[in-house]
């Protein structure tokens, strides 16, 4: 009777739970403190004297170059409201809905996690292999702490106490047409649940409202996508009609909600092999996100 083995608890339960295995983060965490010193930063760049972890994550670069502009967009353009919280002192898997044609939702979730997390963790996102094939993008992805969406990398990150971001809908989610907004796509075969079970970390359902309208995708150019090796080439009311201007996302008003953690450490060893259990948890996480999305979309005063 596998369903009886996992009991989702209140957040208090996760905090009270016996400490998971000691976290061994490869790098000293920088609290969300004063603005980084630009001269120091440049000196480190010129001498190559800065730490990176085994995934190629460069915290200094992320904090100095990537996060400030993202935070400005977060505050000024999308005016994101963050609700809910994240558990401290443990690795965690943040599972969110994916949308918007261009992955702004991932970037904004990274800012939200960094700001909301009690230890100001960097969100370590799992990306498709396409990301690591494209020049420049591959470099930035690795530097910002992303890695390939594969079991080995994900378990490794989670076991070392990192907060990992997963978008199980993948390209089906981010590239879905505008009419399907706020309708979650299939969650794959629940691979993310098996990973969380193996690493024994809580799953945090995360619902993002606002990203689904930034680039209303009304069509796509299949031959062009095939030519460029992309999963889709979007057509929105403004793109490619207005060229680069059309690539600017609409300034919708966002909310990001981190839900109650779903515990996975009570299932016992070998639970990640239990397909029924894995699919059961995957469905529950999906339902939680869908319900939260429906409620939030109905309650918001308007898109902008």
């Amino acid at each position: 009777m596998p369903e009886a083995r996992v009991i989702p608890l209140r957040r208090r339960g996760v905090e009270d739970a016996a400490p998971l295995r000691p976290a061994t983060p490869a790098l000293v965490r920088q609290p969300h403190g004063p603005a980084p010193n630009l001269r120091e930063f440049l000196r480190h760049r010129l001498t190559g004297d800065y730490p990176v972890d085994e995934f190629g994550f460069d915290p200094e670069f992320t904090d100095t170059v990537l996060l400030p502009p993202m935070r400005a967009i977060f505050e000024k353009w999308f005016r994101v409201t963050v609700t809910g919280s994240l558990p401290a002192g443990t690795g965690a898997m943040v599972v969110a809905n994916h949308s918007g044609t261009v992955p702004w939702d991932a970037a904004m979730t990274a800012v939200a996690v960094h700001d909301v997390h009690p230890e100001h963790r960097h969100l370590r996102m799992l990306g498709a292999d396409l990301l690591f094939k494209v020049p420049v993008l591959a470099d930035i992805a690795r530097r910002s702490g992303q890695t390939l969406a594969c079991r080995a990398d994900a378990v490794r990150l989670l076991r070392s106490g990192e907060v990992v971001g997963v978008w199980p809908e993948g390209f089906k989610g981010i590239g879905k047409p505008f009419r399907d907004r706020y309708r979650l796509q299939r969650f794959g075969r629940g691979g993310f649940v098996a990973t969380a079970l193996r690493a024994e970390v809580p799953i945090i359902p995360c619902s993002i409202v606002g990203a689904e309208e930034i680039h209303p995708k009304i069509g796509e150019l299949r031959p062009l996508a095939r030519l460029l090796g992309l999963p889709y080439f979007p057509v929105t009311p403004l793109f490619p009609l207005l060229g680069p201007l059309g690539a600017i996302p609409l300034p919708t008003k966002w909310t990001i909600h981190f839900g109650e953690p779903v515990r996975t450490d009570l299932a016992g060893p070998g639970a990640d092999q239990d397909q029924a259990l894995v699919l059961d948890i995957a469905d529950r996480v999906r339902d939680t996100i869908q319900t939260t999305l429906d409620r939030a979309v109905a309650a918001r005063p308007g898109i902008f």
Binding site: G56, L131, K133, A138, L148, A152, D153, R156
Partner: peptide, 12 residues
């Protein structure tokens, strides 16, 4: 390669 894990253990 782009679709290889970031860190290889002996089984990989």
């Amino acid at each position: 390669g782009p679709n290889a894990p970031a860190v290889f253990t002996e089984q990989d």
